[in-house]
Amino acid sequence: MKRLVAITAAWALAALAAAGVASPAAAQQAPGGLMQPSVPKNVLPSDLEAVRVDERLGEMLPLDVVLTDHDGRQVKLGDYFDKGRPVIVNLGYYGCPMLCGLVINGLNKGLKGLDYLPGDEFDIVTVSIDPKEGTALAKQKRESILEELGKDGAGKGWFFHTATEVEIKRLTDAVGFGYRWDEKGKQWAHAAVIMVASPEGKLARYLYGIEYTPKDLKLAVLDAAEGRVGSTTEQLLLFCYQYDAKAGGYVLFARNMMKLGGVVTLVTLGTFLVVMWRRSPRRES
């Protein structure tokens, strides 16, 4: 049995090293002399350190931010906070080749299964972070999204906007939404997140990733409607998604997920073998 444990431990360490998950230098000593591998963090490249989300939970949005809506009318962010309803804030840009589309499609998918309707229980304010984008593009994007959503009346509560660089910066700074222009890839690098604000304009929830379940959306809206501010337990986005400079965009970092799964499997197997070895009767040689 001891030989089996030793062989298994050696195989496990070799597998972890091959996967790039752990090395003797990166591992930590655990009770009983076992090596506990550490899972590497999914760190953005140094030139993209500004692409992050700093939560501003409980803080007020700058309601005087000036926007231009999909019909070309100049409005203020505060215009959407005078109806007594929570507001979902969605930041991105309409010409995004990848991540923004995934975020807004994920939001759309969640809304399809929600028994709430934009314009009744909440509103959605989508704002482009690209100051070069214009009203025609915002209108086109809105029409395609609402057509895909397929809910009559949803247009009365989902608004698409553009803005000047100064106003965009005011809004993104207020919600802690980091982004930067990637000259090589000719696109904006940013995170996948939506925010939910209370009826008076206070930030209440941050939802991460590209999938927003109807349950999560409903609970976030209900909490925001009651003025409850909730902390985020983990930012899964920071682990699952990484900006790939070579690919020129954000990609699903599948290797990290596979590595984590491998670590869990190997640690579980190793623990089981150690327990069985300790419980087995000692035989005299």
Rank of each mutant, 00 (worst) to 15 (best):
G58F: 01
T233L: 08
A197H: 02
N42K: 07
V51C: 05
A224R: 02
A254T: 11
R142M: 05
I168E: 00
L236K: 15
V66C: 06
S128C: 12
V89I: 14
A247T: 12
P40F: 00
G33S: 02
T271I: 08
Y206G: 08
R142N: 02
S46Y: 09
S128K: 05
R228F: 06
R52P: 06
S23T: 08
A9D: 12
G261Y: 02
L238F: 13
F177T: 02
G176L: 00
K132P: 14
Y241D: 01
G157S: 04
L149T: 05
T68W: 01
A245R: 14
E211T: 13
V274D: 08
P45G: 07
L207R: 03
A22P: 02
P281K: 10
L219Q: 04
E183V: 10
G230I: 15
D54E: 14
V264C: 04
G178L: 01
K218S: 07
Y179C: 07
K41L: 15
Q29N: 07
F160N: 08
V39E: 09
A192F: 01
L111N: 08
E234R: 11
L146I: 03
F253G: 14
E55W: 06
S23E: 01
A254G: 06
L207Y: 01
L102A: 13
K141H: 08
G119L: 04
D244A: 04
G119E: 01
I145H: 10
K186I: 01
A19E: 09
N256T: 12
A136M: 11
I88T: 07
G72L: 02
Y243Q: 10
A174P: 05
Q235L: 05
L266G: 06
L57M: 07
E49Q: 13
N90E: 15
R279C: 15
L171S: 01
Y179R: 12
L236N: 11
A19G: 12
K169Q: 07
A254R: 11
G153I: 08
M35P: 14
G157L: 05
K184H: 01
A10L: 10
A204N: 06
T135D: 12
Q242Y: 06
K139M: 09
A204L: 02
G178D: 03
Y80L: 04
